Amino acid sequence: MKNFLFPDVVPPSFMWVRPERGDMTNVHEWIQPIMSTSDPEKSKDADIVLVGVPLSRSSIRSSGASEFPEAFRRSWKSFTTYNLDEDIDLSEMMVLDAGDVPMHVTDIRKCHDTIIQASAALHHYFPTTKVCAIGGDHSITAMMVKGLHQAKPDEKIGILQFDTHFDLRDLSDNGPSNGTPMRNLIESGVVKGSDMYNIGLHGFFNTKELKMYADEKGVNYITLRNARKKGIEETVQRCLEKLAASVDTIYVTVDMDVLDIAYAPGVPASTPGGMTTDELLEGVLTAGLHPKVKAMDIVCLDPLRDSHVQGTVKLGTHVFLTFLSGVKLRRE
């Protein structure tokens, strides 16, 4: 069945059959496929609309991150809508699954153009709804932000990035890959370097040249060591406060490689010395609480590399639900 966003967004490859009545205590019973919405106008009141962006051909190294949107949806049955830590029930929110952005089999540039088009359509149709993109590799972030910029050209956009890497590689060498989204946004004039904040950099996984470029463009970055000294929550809050003083909209991007390899085996570029699960969830919850955070994504999670229990996939879903918890708490 086609939805009203077709052809910008198409039905996902996997959907749960939702019960027609009764209490919806599990996530797979609660999130509504947008195709089931009988009144498209009413859907504009949704709190969250999620969209799968199954692209990983643009990854620097071999990645099955394109498989995450389906694995993400399949994992919902393992989660309830009740957050014990915050004593809130997410089922009171309206969350819609828009489906997936259609991908070309071989043409990466066409895929990126399609993502921009889909993002613009989502932000145009859902002007006050938080749009959450489920990647896919990190190249999708530049395209989702460009689509947001197309839909709302008068709004100044800032980026809060959880990442082990700068993602500022040279486009002339790497193209629009998962190693270049932040540079792509800077050089395209969509986001200023001074309106980017990266939390989580650590260890031996970035070159000095990338740091020099970040300094030249005014990119703000907080190493994981320094973030831990100040506290993750306080660090994120300070970054959001500084961003909020200069931008209209904050886009949060969560590269799952920010996590230590011990916590995220299902990540192509996972490293030792990264964030713990608790640290990332604390940071994402803090971001979700901020009123200027209006969009986010989760990227670079490869279910094909994950353990047989799909622990990293479940963690990705936990990150998503934690962000939603922050969005709900900001209203309370």
Results as ranks from 00 to 15, higher is better:
residue 256 M to Q: 06
residue 267 V to K: 11
residue 273 G to H: 05
residue 207 T to L: 07
residue 223 T to D: 01
residue 268 P to W: 10
residue 256 M to A: 12
residue 236 V to H: 04
residue 211 K to Y: 10
residue 255 D to E: 10
residue 212 M to A: 13
residue 242 K to Y: 00
residue 211 K to H: 07
residue 253 T to V: 02
residue 202 H to E: 05
residue 252 V to S: 01
residue 232 I to M: 13
residue 243 L to H: 09
residue 240 L to A: 05
residue 261 I to K: 15
residue 214 A to T: 05
residue 272 P to H: 12
residue 226 N to E: 15
residue 254 V to F: 03
residue 238 R to W: 01
residue 269 A to M: 08
residue 223 T to Q: 07
residue 249 T to R: 12
residue 220 N to Y: 04
residue 222 I to G: 00
residue 249 T to V: 15
residue 250 I to V: 12
residue 237 Q to F: 06
residue 245 A to K: 07
residue 264 A to M: 08
residue 259 L to K: 11
residue 220 N to E: 11
residue 205 F to S: 08
residue 267 V to E: 07
residue 234 E to F: 04
residue 222 I to D: 00
residue 271 T to M: 13
residue 233 E to Q: 13
residue 258 V to I: 14
residue 276 T to S: 15
residue 271 T to Y: 09
residue 234 E to A: 15
residue 240 L to P: 07
residue 206 N to C: 05
residue 230 K to P: 02
residue 264 A to C: 12
residue 263 Y to H: 13
residue 203 G to L: 06
residue 275 M to L: 11
residue 261 I to P: 05
residue 253 T to W: 06
residue 223 T to A: 01
residue 209 E to S: 12
residue 204 F to M: 12
residue 266 G to C: 08
residue 240 L to S: 03
residue 268 P to H: 13
residue 202 H to F: 06
residue 254 V to Y: 00
residue 269 A to C: 10
residue 207 T to F: 04
residue 220 N to W: 01
residue 255 D to S: 08
residue 257 D to F: 05
residue 278 D to I: 10
residue 213 Y to H: 04
residue 245 A to E: 14
residue 277 T to L: 09
residue 238 R to G: 02
residue 223 T to S: 15
residue 221 Y to C: 00
residue 232 I to R: 02
residue 252 V to H: 07
residue 243 L to N: 00
residue 212 M to S: 11
residue 227 A to V: 00
residue 278 D to F: 11
residue 248 D to I: 12
residue 271 T to P: 02
residue 235 T to G: 03
residue 271 T to S: 14
residue 209 E to P: 00
residue 238 R to H: 14
residue 267 V to R: 11
residue 228 R to I: 00
residue 262 A to C: 13
residue 204 F to R: 15
residue 254 V to G: 00
residue 261 I to Y: 13
